[in-house]
Amino acid sequence: MKTVEVKKGILERNQENADLLRSIFYQNRIFVMNLVSSPGSGKTSLLEKVLPIVKENYNILVIEGDLQTENDAERVRKTGVEAIQINTGGACHLEAVNILKVLKGYDLTKIDCIIIENVGNLVCPSSFDLGEDLKVLLISTTEGEDKPIKYPSMVRVSSVLVVNKLDLIPYVNFDVEKAITYAIGVNNKLEIFKTSCFTGEGIEEFAVWLKSKIEDKKL
């Protein structure tokens, strides 16, 4: 018996695909955001509110990841933004190869921003780089405020935390500041937004932030 040194990252192949995507996005000056959360935190609702504001100035493409149905892509299309639906079948996350496949032959020259709405799952998507500039993590007030320390790997790899469904605070036992402190304890570099897709609170701020990120990528 002999020992053969490997010293390789397990997700090397996904990383190679993600690096390829990142270089394609860079060449085309496309800002790419990977939107992650548990199922039902309001990823699609946030897009329905933010897209109408941002699409006035920029060409956006949304890639929707779900196990089944075209429902989320259809909701996005109603805002006038183009959407591609990926049905993973049973898979609990998107991988870089899924994104490469749907973008093959796609004319990216006119696109300013791609938003990938990942499969609703707070665990698995954390391991798979999709070539994005950053991950935006949504948690909502109907979840436990300790979500950030229960699912730390996702918080670690995210750059932005959006606390959504602020309008429900009077009816739920959710301490926003506590949730944010937990999140900062896991990842002190997080940028924080607080939103309600129902009242519109915080939506404009998030849209302004997204526009500035799209602009920064063009420099």
Partner: peptide
């Protein structure tokens, strides 16, 4: 302080294999 940088704990790699 929250300004803590992780030195280890995020690994996901194959160190080596033992073969015949």
């Amino acid at each position: 302080s929250f300004n803590v940088e992780l030195i280890s704990g995020e690994e996901l790699s194959i160190k080596d294999i033992e073969v015949d």
